[in-house]
Design a protein around this nucleic acid. Structure first.
Lengths: 296, 465
RNA sequence: GGCUGGGUACUUCAGAUGGUAGAGUAUCAAAUUUUUAUUCUGAGGGGCCAGGGUUCAAGUCCCUGUUCAGGUG
């Protein structure tokens, strides 16, 4: 198992995703002899997990069952332990495409945060690309480095504990793409430009507030970036449901032929299938500002 | 001075008023009653002290549930040279930064410290507060204020406030009708003073009240209601003056078919079977009343307790039937009056918002509208409105049909911190709106139907030719 | 003992696998007949246990206490 390559069987030391229901799953480190409690009962790693195929249905102690899934960056995003607010899959998908990432891309990122986006980037640029990620909070940098190792992607990533606004990314002239998720991105635009290849590339900045976007766009323009464009993607998830609507009773209709079953109609209702979007969607995450560094 | 005092009078809170309590974004509608305990947001208090104050006054909730008008804070946050960090790189989430324990905080509360003072204590005992950024400090204070400030604002009810209240508090009761959608409805239906509007709703009376507010007590509103009686709990909360209710009429939909067919009987003297029966009942009652004293006497003479009880029972029964009869008569008169209002078939607007399948409601009630009048239908789901749309297109008699939904978004606007808040899209329901037009009575129904797709067919023949 | 999952309406609940703005009881009202009541229909009632800490100036975040349930030794 690795986050960038599928394995068939669950092995000791793997990270497995225990799928309890569509809105509840947990990431589990598989260890010989260990056991995991769920609301359906206990899972014994030695007998229930190790050697089983990913995707298997595992029966728990109390007769309940769960599915055990191979990790992906998307599953990781919904069950990783938060140290910070994280980027979710809708934004990640947009960022990946608009930064034109592909196998072999060299990417610079800051801040690393909880590593939600980092895992998705690594999956996309593997097996030959590299991610340089910079995080100024020491404990957070250490924690995410540990996770990269556990997920067997550490050969694709370099974690640096420094301030990107002051010290940059630790590399220059190499990046195909740069991503900024920091409070004052305009202070890092110069370093972003320096990190990028002279052949040019793409940059993205994520900010919750519109004033941050304004300042960043100004800085990008000052540094000669082109195609500056800010966007926001909103995802609407629909539940499919069967609902029933009662039919109103207008009383006997003299103009219509008398029917013996009018009384039945009084209590009649129609059922229909429809989609019900949640009445409140997840709140605003942030604005995504993209730009192109032109070839010199 | 005296004049301004009088002018103010109508803006002051009075006993018996229907008001709305507000705290943050939470609302609750109540009536002001002496010594009535009100529970709002897990706090209880009395509204007696609010009487006489202006609407929109904010009160502190004192001990014993007494309200005290909040004093206007002048220079609230004295802008001392604030200490603040530049970023959070050195803040570690180890849960040890607050030195006050839960018990300490409980003690402070019991000592009767004001919210502001408790917050000050929390800040002073936080080892990380001064290292937070200016913005993070702001946010921290805002969060604590929400928790510790015990205030309540008393508002005069309006459609805006009640619509927001219901949406937040009891969305199921108003079929999830969101306030932006209600706003569209009132405008699309051209609700204004002096018109005659039909309303069919199962939204606790919110839509009805909203229409009445826009009519300002001029014109007439006819509530078409399903089942045994109209639901108007929400209308109460608007606190309309008495004369508004003179413009409100009601008509049960179970008589719509009869009314449309011209077979609805609302006359008292018609020798219909029903009337005959009630006549007989009346006679019997009269006889019984005459007999009553006698039976009373006999029972006392016999000194049988059971008989006495029986008699009393009968007496109550009779009184009940008598009251019932009067009620029925009144109802009949009202029904006749409203029926004549409807029979003119010249209503100016139609508003439908219900949990029912709207199609038959719409097709039935449209017949009471004059030509060139707007109508609007709300449904929580779009499928029934698609069906309405299709039927109307087939049937003719309407133009300018639109099926819509609206999205609503609130914003936080703060220096350097401006961004959208929650997006509410979908779930706020859907609208079908349109305008009635005169139908061509000379042509048979079949010909009318054929008329609708005619332009398309013409086009086809043109191209073919 | 350590683990997992819950606490919202006056009150009690809400699915062993995609149902937490949904209900039941109770209350009130209309209809009904069998009348200190019955049946049926409808209505009113909702801001999510308490405290703390953290995330960027967006929680789909974390911890503690309390209480209930499951399950493990």
């Amino acid at each position: 198992m690795s986050f960038v390559e599928y394995g068939d069987l669950i092995q000791d030391g793997d990270i497995a995703i225990v799928y309890l229901s569509h809105d509840s799953m947990m990431a589990v480190k598989v260890q010989q002899g260990a056991q995991t409690q769920t609301r359906y009962g206990v899972i014994r790693h030695s007998t229930d997990l190790i050697g089983q195929r990913y995707g298997s249905k595992v029966t728990c102690s109390k007769g309940g069952w769960v599915h055990v899934l191979h990790p992906t960056p998307e599953l990781w995003t919904v069950c990783l332990p938060h140290r910070t607010q994280i980027l979710y899959t809708t934004d990640i998908a947009t960022i990946t495409m608009m930064l034109e990432l592909k196998p072999g891309s060299i990417v610079c990122e800051s801040g690393t945060g909880s590593g939600s986006l980092s895992h998705a980037i690594l999956r996309t640029i593997a097996p030959t690309g590299h991610l340089h990620t910079v995080e100024f909070h020491q404990q957070r940098a250490e924690k995410v480095a540990e996770e990269f190792k556990e997920h067997r992607v550490d050969h694709l990533v370099t974690v640096r504990n420094q301030d990107v606004c002051k010290d940059g990314f630790g590399v220059t002239g190499v990046a195909d793409a740069v991503f900024l998720d920091i409070p004052k991105p305009w202070e890092a635009v110069g370093h972003a430009k320096a990190a990028m290849r002279k052949q040019g590339g793409r940059v993205c900045s994520f900010s919750p507030c519109i004033e941050q976007v304004q300042k960043t766009c100004e800085a990008l323009a000052d540094q000669g970036f082109q195609e500056i464009s800010t966007l926001e993607v909103l995802l609407r998830v629909h539940d499919v449901r069967t609902v029933s609507l009662p039919l109103p009773d207008f009383g006997p209709d003299p103009s219509a032929p008398a029917r013996p079953d009018t009384k039945e109609q009084n209590h009649a209702s129609v059922t229909l299938k429809t989609t019900t979007p949640p009445r409140e969607m997840p709140g605003h995450t942030g604005y995504l500002t993209f730009a192109t560094k032109p070839r010199l | 001075m005296a004049d301004t005092g009088d002018e103010d009078c109508q803006y002051r809170i009075k006993e018996g008023d229907y008001v709305v309590l507000k705290r943050g974004d939470i609302f609750k509608a109540v009536q002001i009653q002496p010594r009535k305990k009100v529970i709002f947001e897990k706090q209880w208090f009395f509204l007696d002290n609010a009487v006489g104050h202006l609407y929109s006054t904010t009160f502190d909730i004192g001990s014993g549930g007494a309200l005290q008008p909040q004093k206007l804070k002048e220079n609230e946050s004295c802008s001392d040279a604030k200490e603040a960090g530049t970023d959070n790189r050195h803040i570690v989430d180890d849960g040890k930064s607050q030195k006050l324990t839960r018990d300490d905080i409980e003690t402070l509360k019991e000592q009767g410290l004001k919210g502001q003072e408790i917050i000050q204590q929390l800040i002073e005992n936080s080892s990380t507060f001064r290292d937070k950024t200016e913005y993070a400090q702001d946010k921290y204070i805002k969060k604590k204020k929400k928790k510790y400030e015990n205030t309540v604002t008393v508002l005069r009810p309006t459609c805006r406030i009640l619509a927001m209240m219901y949406h937040g508090r009891e969305p199921g009761k108003i079929c999830h009708l969101r306030y932006d959608t209600l706003a569209q409805m009132l405008t699309l239906a051209n609700i204004h003073a002096g018109s005659k509007v039909l309303v069919f709703e199962t939204c606790a009376g919110l839509v009805l009240g909203a229409v009445m507010e826009r009519m300002g007590g001029f014109g007439s509103v006819i509530q078409m209601y399903p089942g045994g009686g109209p639901v108007r709990a929400g209308v109460e909360s608007f606190g309309f003056p008495a004369h508004f209710h003179d413009t409100l009429h009601e008509f049960p939909i179970c008589h719509v078919n009869a009314l449309l067919a011209g077979t609805l009987d609302t006359t008292a003297k018609e020798p219909s079977a029903d009337e005959n029966q009630s006549g007989v009942v009346a006679e019997e009652e009269q006889n019984q009343r005459e007999v009553e004293p006698q039976s009373m006497e006999t029972s006392t003479a016999d000194a049988v307790g059971d008989d006495q009880e029986k008699n009393e029972k009968e007496k109550r029964k009779e009184a009940k039937t008598q009251v019932k009869k009067l009620k029925l008569e009144e109802k009949r008169k009202k029904l006749a009056a409203v029926a004549s209002l409807l029979e003119a078939r010249n209503a100016d607007g139609l508003v439908i918002a219900s949990r029912f399948q709207p199609c038959s409601v719409l097709m039935g009630l449209l017949k009471f509208l004059a030509p060139s009048r707007p109508f609007v239908v709300y449904s929580q789901y779009k499928e029934p409105l698609i069906e309405c749309y299709t039927k109307l297109r087939e049937h003719g008699g309407t133009v300018n049909l639109k099926l819509t939904d609206s999205w609503l978004r609130h914003y936080q606007v703060l220096p350097n911190r401006t961004h959208p808040l929650l997006l509410m899209s979908g779930g706020g329901g859907y609208l079908l709106s349109g305008t009635t037009v005169a139908t061509d009575h000379q042509k048979p129904a079949g010909a009318q139907r054929a008329e609708e797709p005619a332009p398309k067919r013409l086009k086809l023949t043109d191209t073919e030719a």
